[in-house]
Computed example of a mutant assay.
Amino acid sequence: MKPEDNTAVEPTAPVEAFTPAEEPTYAKSGLTSSSLFNRTERDILEIVLEDGKTYTVDQAKAEIKKFKEGM
């Protein structure tokens, strides 16, 4: 006889869909001093980002792109 396998655990609550963690956000000052951006990009961020608001890196990159397209 085989011993019973008691290692399987049945969920006690329904399994919910995976939700990815939110991207971190940064203040204008954090992005304008970041080494992720070159000097020109940091200057653009200084112009286009608002004080007191926070942005993800992707949002900052999108603002840089929008600014360059408008030139």
Rank of each mutant, 00 (worst) to 15 (best):
E50A: 07
P3C: 08
T12P: 14
Y26E: 01
K66H: 05
K61H: 08
G52V: 04
L49N: 07
Y55D: 03
E46P: 08
F37L: 00
S33G: 10
S35E: 14
R42M: 02
V15I: 13
V57A: 06
E41M: 06
V9T: 15
V9C: 12
T54V: 10
E50T: 13
P20M: 02
E41P: 04
E63N: 06
V48K: 01
E23I: 11
I44W: 02
A8Q: 14
S34E: 00
K68T: 06
N6I: 15
V15H: 11
S33L: 11
T19F: 12
I64D: 02
V9P: 13
V57G: 05
L45N: 00
K2T: 03
K65G: 05
A21F: 12
E41V: 04
P11E: 03
A17F: 14
E4C: 14
K65H: 07
L31N: 02
F18V: 07
P11D: 04
K66M: 09
G70N: 15
V9A: 12
E10M: 09
T56C: 03
F67G: 02
G52D: 11
G70F: 07
F37R: 01
A8H: 11
A13Y: 14
N6D: 10
K2D: 08
A13S: 12
K65V: 10
T40N: 06
K66V: 10
E46L: 09
E63Y: 03
F18D: 05
R42G: 02
A62G: 07
F67C: 05
K61I: 10
T7L: 08
E22N: 11
E69L: 08
T56F: 07
T12L: 13
K2R: 11
Q59L: 03
K53G: 13
L45F: 01
R39Y: 12
P3Q: 07
G70I: 10
E16A: 15
R42E: 00
T40G: 06
S34L: 01
M71H: 14
F67N: 05
D58F: 13
S34R: 02
I47T: 15
T12A: 09
T54Q: 04
K61D: 15
T12G: 12
F67R: 04
T56E: 05
Y55M: 00
M1V: 11
R42T: 00
D51S: 15
T32K: 04
R42H: 00
K53M: 12
E4T: 15
L49D: 09
E41K: 05
E22R: 12
D58H: 12
V15P: 03
E63M: 06
T7N: 11
V9M: 12
G30C: 01
N38H: 04
K28T: 02
D43R: 03
L31R: 01
Y55V: 04
P20R: 01
A17Y: 14
V15R: 11
P20V: 00
T54H: 03
A13C: 12
A21C: 05
V48S: 02
I44N: 01
T19A: 15
M71W: 11
F37S: 01
T19V: 10
E50M: 08
D51F: 09
E69Y: 08
E41R: 07
D58S: 15
P11R: 04
K53R: 15
D43G: 13
Q59N: 07
